[in-house]
Amino acid sequence: MLMQARAAAVYHLHWKIRQGQLRLFVRLRFPYVLGSDIAGEVVSVGVRANKFKAGDPIFAFSDPRRGAG
């Protein structure tokens, strides 16, 4: 599925993580993209995708342990 992102969440702790202020508590493997929530709409779907169609609104989470990228 391909989606067009319309909005993404940025949390209050992301800037501290980005600046390295939480490095003793949050250990990341780079490259790492902060954030895990995204909203938008479906642009196209593959052959086996039968729950969504182009134009459907969608909200998704990525695995925060792996990063959003």
Results as ranks from 00 to 15, higher is better:
Asn50Gln: 13
His12Leu: 13
Leu24His: 13
Val10Gly: 05
Gly46Pro: 10
Gly46Asn: 11
Ala68Met: 13
Leu13Ser: 12
Arg18Pro: 01
Gly67Asp: 03
Gly67Leu: 03
Ile17Ala: 07
Asp56Ser: 06
Leu34Arg: 02
Ala39Gln: 04
Arg29His: 04
Phe25Glu: 15
Ala9Glu: 07
Leu28Phe: 00
Pro31Cys: 06
His14Gln: 13
Ser36Pro: 01
Val47Gln: 15
Leu34Gln: 09
Met3Asn: 03
Ile38Pro: 00
Leu24Ile: 05
Arg66Trp: 06
Val33Met: 10
Asn50Cys: 06
Arg66Phe: 04
Asp56Cys: 08
Val42Met: 09
Ala39Arg: 03
Ala60Ser: 09
Val42Ala: 05
Ala54Trp: 03
Phe25Lys: 14
Val10Asp: 01
Gly20Gln: 07
Arg65Met: 05
Asn50Gly: 07
Val10Tyr: 06
Val45Asp: 04
Ala5Lys: 10
Phe25Cys: 11
Ala68Leu: 03
Arg6Ile: 03
Gly20Met: 01
Ala5Asp: 12
Met1Val: 12
Lys51Asn: 09
Ala49Ser: 12
Ile38Asp: 01
Asp63Pro: 02
Gly55Pro: 10
Ala5Asn: 09
Ala7Arg: 13
Arg6Leu: 10
Leu22Glu: 15
Met1Asn: 03
Arg6Thr: 04
Ile17Val: 14
Leu22Gly: 08
Gln21Phe: 03
Ala60Asn: 08
Gly55Asp: 12
Gly40Met: 08
Met3Tyr: 10
Leu22Trp: 07
Pro64Tyr: 05
Gly67Lys: 00
Phe52Gln: 04
Gly69Leu: 01
Val43Ala: 14
Arg27Glu: 09
Val45Gln: 08
Leu22Ile: 03
Lys53His: 07
Leu22Thr: 12
Val33Tyr: 11
Val26Cys: 07
Lys16Val: 00
Ser44Ile: 00
Phe30His: 15
Asn50Lys: 13
